[in-house]
């Protein structure tokens, strides 16, 4: 059963159409990857789903029109992790992760200011899942790249939303942390959560994602399992590259290898 359905989506930014005529659905427990060259509209699409951009068409979550859902209800259904590092003040990791509980905060006049038991449990779970319990009291601005990525992910997990949208969460990480974070996200899906992930690394995409949507210039090129999407033809057409494919432990993988001759600069 699908959790999220996008139909006839069109997004304009500064007068230019960035995503056009896009329809797809993401199922419960699905690890859904968005791939495509720079400027393909991946981040724009994720931000439109997160209701951060105006759009035409319909985006439904759990059969409710997302654009009509009140902000707080929406924030409990969908957690968004932006690209890049954005924590401004040296707040503690614990306080950072606790911000993920904001959508559950009651109004202050109803005495909802303090953390409740389920908030504390959600924070502890998120810290444990990302393996940063020992960093609780550290300042968020003083963490290493890998630690910071996990702390921001813990903040997202603490929302306990059925759908997570993550924009390149592994881009700045070393291979060990990349695999760690991807495994962690897959765990979220194993427990029934859905995930839409923007990523550039085709090898990780082929290994971890259940399905992929390949975009080019805001239009869908291919949608399906990694095997269906990451074909030699699609990679040549969209990225202008050739890739090596193989199988390890019964899993197919794709390894970008070299540029297609004569098409070295075909991406817009």
């Amino acid at each position: 059963m699908s959790l999220l359905t996008v139909s006839g989506l069109e997004v304009r930014l500064a007068g230019k159409i960035r995503v056009r005529d896009l329809s797809f659905a993401v199922g419960e427990g699905e690890f859904f990857g968005l791939i495509g060259p720079n400027g393909a509209g991946k981040s724009t699409l994720v931000r439109a789903i997160a209701q951060l951009l105006p759009y035409r068409g319909q985006i439904r979550l759990d059969d409710q029109d997302l654009s009509r859902l009140p902000a707080q209800a929406r924030a409990r259904q969908l957690a968004y992790l932006s690209q890049g590092d954005a924590v401004q003040w040296p707040i503690s990791v614990q306080d950072l992760v606790a911000l993920g509980r904001h959508p559950y905060r009651g109004s202050w006049w109803r005495g909802g200011g303090g953390a409740r038991a389920d908030d504390l449990a959600a924070i502890d779970d998120a810290l444990r899942a990302t393996d940063i319990e020992h960093l609780r009291q550290r300042k968020a601005t003083e963490l290493s790249g890998g630690e910071r990525a996990r702390a921001r992910l813990a903040r997202v997990l603490a929302v306990q939303a059925p759908l997570i949208l993550a924009d390149e969460p592994v881009a700045a990480l070393d291979p060990r942390h990349q695999i760690q974070v991807m495994t962690l996200l897959r765990e979220h899906c194993r427990r029934g959560g859905s995930l839409i992930l923007v990523l550039h690394d085709l090898t990780l995409a082929s290994r971890f994602c259940d399905r992929l949507l390949m975009l080019q210039c805001g239009e869908p090129v291919a949608l399906g399992t990694p095997g269906e999407v990451l074909t030699g033809e699609n990679l040549r057409r969209v990225y202008g590259i050739r890739a090596v494919t193989g199988t390890h432990d019964l899993q197919d993988y794709v390894l970008p290898w070299d540029c297609e001759p004569g098409e070295s600069d075909s991406s817009p």
Binding site: Q51, L52, A71, R74, L81, H102, L165
Partner: peptide, 20 residues
């Protein structure tokens, strides 16, 4: 006050957490 705490995450993430 509560919204400013959340804004430490940046405008996009704060907005996704329900901050107007």
């Amino acid at each position: 006050a509560p919204a400013l705490d959340v804004l430490a995450l940046g405008e996009a993430e704060a907005s996704s957490l329900g901050i107007d």
